[in-house]
């Protein structure tokens, strides 16, 4: 919902903190998730994630969440789905060129990022969305990747997931 999503941007700092705690918890529970099987958890978790993030951010479940680098404003709500906005068409007052009664998702992102501790990650160039991840859970992927990264650091093994791990904080 538009009003809720704007609330989320106004409270980007709070949500950032909440996300860090929640993300950390998910990551620490990795042994449990592995025991249960990430594949088996995927569907129910994606359903819960979609509901919560749908309410808070009008999330589209792109599967590669970058809210931490976009001021808690979901870039998939941009009519051009820009992952690196805003475009040059922003109207006076910061409204969208296409939906003139909607605030530009990226003007909101910039405002949200200024409230966040890690807001400067908005300067990271985001890779194009991997469309094959549409509908999948970002939470589980982030937990799995970060836990694997940590294990790899400990054991000095081969990097898991390649370059995409270096993306701005997936949430």
């Amino acid at each position: 919902m538009y009003a809720v999503r704007r609330w989320s941007v106004r409270h980007a700092r709070f949500l950032e903190r909440l996300y860090r705690l929640f993300g950390g918890a998910l990551e620490r529970l990795d042994p449990i998730w592995r025991m249960m099987g990430y594949a088996r958890l995927e569907k129910p978790v994606a359903a819960v994630e979609g509901t919560i993030k749908g309410f808070l951010f009008d999330c589209r479940m792109c599967g590669r969440c970058v809210l931490g680098s976009t001021g808690m404003s979901c870039p998939m709500n941009c009519p051009k789905q820009l992952r690196n906005g805003p475009c040059g068409g922003v109207r006076d007052g910061g409204y969208c060129e296409i939906k003139s009664d909607m605030r530009c998702v990226w003007v909101e992102a910039w405002e949200g990022a200024e409230r966040m501790r890690q807001g400067m990650t908005i300067d990271i160039v985001q890779l194009p969305v991997d469309n094959s991840l549409q509908g999948s859970s970002s939470w589980m992927r982030a937990a799995r990747e970060r836990a694997a990264e940590r294990r790899e650091k400990v054991t000095g093994g081969i990097a898991f997931g390649g370059a995409r791990l270096k993306d701005a904080e997936p949430q």
Binding site: Q81, R83, N84, V125, Q126, N131
Partner: peptide, 8 residues
Amino acid sequence: VFDLDCMS
């Protein structure tokens, strides 16, 4: 389409 954006 907007599969990529100007940046990517």
